[in-house]
Design a protein around this nucleic acid. Structure first.
Lengths: 338, 338
DNA sequence: GAATATTTCGGAAACGTTTCCATAATTAAA
DNA sequence: TTTAATTATGGAAACGTTTCCGAAATATTC
């Protein structure tokens, strides 16, 4: 089975490859008659253009690289679904990588992408990512890169976030309103921006309320789920334990629920819980979990629209250095109400 | 900023492009001295090879296409994580598409992939996919394609599944053992293989038990979540309602839980529930959900290993036409026990 | 020391497109 | 009719690699 390419079509039709190419691309300088002939044969032989020859020639791959720190997470899946809903209409393809919260892995992925494999990058940095040298490299190469959720502040590009500070504040405020006196904040890492912002909102709420505050209420967790469970358990053991918990990521709320199940403590009677989370079944948990959920789909769509504008329009207006905020929404459920 | 490519390096070094290329690829026919010089300059100028030129030349893209019917689903995320853990060591990239359970979308994706954009395809077909003409096309083009979970039986290639029949049987048997007399089976579609197999297991268990059986116990649902909820609610309303439910997919179990929450029926007292599901927090539901969970990570790893063997070894042994079974495991929780 | 093998490199073709440039044929303008 | 503009096509270069084919220069063998 000879591979059917433009040259082959041309020879079969007794035309030049350039004519065939133009006909296939519906160029104005080709007569209707030849166009028809070419199209017919292309269809008959099921001609498929070679994307790599095209990319090589056009210096564009019609591919977008996505880097997320975790794949088994509704939030990121929703963002990608949103993004794909926009990009697929433009014929763009999605190359998706999981950095696994590992900055070394992240660097490796970035290095793959520097060769021009993708026309743009959409990413959420790993929790380990403190320096952004590798990201600067991308920017300097002129590859459009935008961030969402976990952003790299020092790269001058568009970043999509939610109202992390405000949400952290509101979540904490809600717990205070429910009568909590000692509220613990579960954080994944101090490196990442959203952690900081949410923490600041928490701190602000505590300060405003004039409740006593102890540094140890801030629990910095790691990637090691077992260790996290131990740390959380230790926190819940003493009599001076917190009566409220706000978790800055879904994963830690789940661990908290699991730990609490092993103890005699009841939610919400003994401990009230609120978490940032995009799980679809918060309602079905025991007890239903109060959540602050991010507009994941919207964020994905916004990323997609921005990129498509940049990549498909001739007008090369650069991507603005700005932070776009799409607000989260809190849904109070039983886990935080007496 | 001139783009740094092999030609540019060659001119800077006063060498031929062929020499530079060979040096970069550590060819045996280049002296250590020149290799060192080339490497040094390449590093200094941060040379990155153009993947498309390479792909065009080599007729291989180092890219694998993945098509899943649903992105917001732990099972598929876990499979992809497993797959990536294998393929990334070989420097392969993952192009991931969501068919959204839509066979037309699936066809569109397939047509994108026919041009040689990927070296192989891993997929789980949509629930609408009854004919597999479009998949045959892939096979005929010589692009390796393998299936997992939802397979296309008539394509002679390797398919990875779990013991669907047995699991359907065991799940149903378990409900019978718990005293259920009228067990409903929730199915997403009769088209897909896993649905059929799981259903057959269910039927076998019912038959063996000599319980009465009514066709209407088999509830065929759709992609419309609202409609599914309505249908399930209707089923639960009459006095002749089922006292046991086995759901062939996670999504329908969730809908069932949601519907049940609105009624006065209690799980497991009034209705016992078992579901195929890979959710990580079945333990935390109210009540904890008895699950049959597939070895998603293992399936992904198995797919990855098979493909890497096929794609990286010289020995062109073709992919076998066989079905490989990796067993699921049932975890009984409160939702199915009195 | 002549013949042969080995090492090391250069030139050019090839992968499949698209597009620049040229040109013959046709049509419009003068 | 002659000249200019338009239409429709062909030829060839270019994108950045890799590799086939040669061919010097050096090393080895008899």
């Amino acid at each position: 089975m000879a591979k059917v390419n433009i040259k082959y079509l041309a020879s079969k039709l007794n035309m030049a490859p350039s004519t065939v190419s133009r006909a296939l691309n519906d160029s104005y300088e080709i007569s209707h008659a030849t166009k028809a002939k070419v199209m017919a044969l292309a269809k008959e032989l099921n001609y498929q253009p070679n994307p790599y020859a095209r990319s090589l020639r056009a210096h564009s791959s019609k591919t977008i690289g996505i880097i997320i720190p975790e794949r088994i997470n509704n939030f990121f899946s929703q963002v990608i679904d949103g993004l794909e809903s926009v990009t697929q209409e433009f014929g763009y393809h999605l190359l998706i990588y999981n950095s696994n919260e590992d900055v070394e892995q992240e660097k490796k992925i970035i290095s793959y992408l520097l060769g021009g494999r993708v026309d743009a990058i959409v990413m959420s940095v790993s929790s380990q990512t403190s320096s952004s040298e590798h990201l600067v490299q991308v920017y300097n190469q002129g590859i459009p890169i935008i961030f969402f959720d976990r952003i790299a502040l020092d790269i001058p590009t568009t970043k999509f976030i939610t109202n992390d500070f405000e949400s952290g504040y509101l979540g904490t405020k809600h717990l205070i309103d429910q009568g909590c006196k000692k509220i613990s904040f579960l954080s994944l890492s101090k490196e990442i921006t959203i952690g900081k912002e949410r923490l600041n909102g928490y701190l602000e709420a505590i300060k405003t309320s004039e409740l006593p505050f102890d540094e140890s209420w801030i629990l910095e967790c790691t990637q090691d789920e077992k260790k996290n469970a131990e740390v959380i358990e230790q926190m819940l053991f003493p009599i001076s334990r917190p009566d409220g918990i706000i978790s800055s990521v879904e994963k830690l709320a789940i661990t908290t629920y699991q730990v609490l199940k092993k103890t005699r403590l009841k939610v919400p009677q003994d401990v009230r819980v609120v978490s940032f989370s995009n799980m679809g079944i918060a309602d079905l948990l025991d007890p239903p979990l109060s959540t602050i959920s991010q507009p994941a789909g919207e964020i994905g769509i916004a990323c997609g629209k921005l990129l498509m504008k940049k990549l498909t329009k001739k007008k090369q207006e650069n991507i603005q250095d700005e932070i776009i905020m799409i607000p989260s929404s809190m849904k109070v459920r039983k886990s935080s109400q007496p």
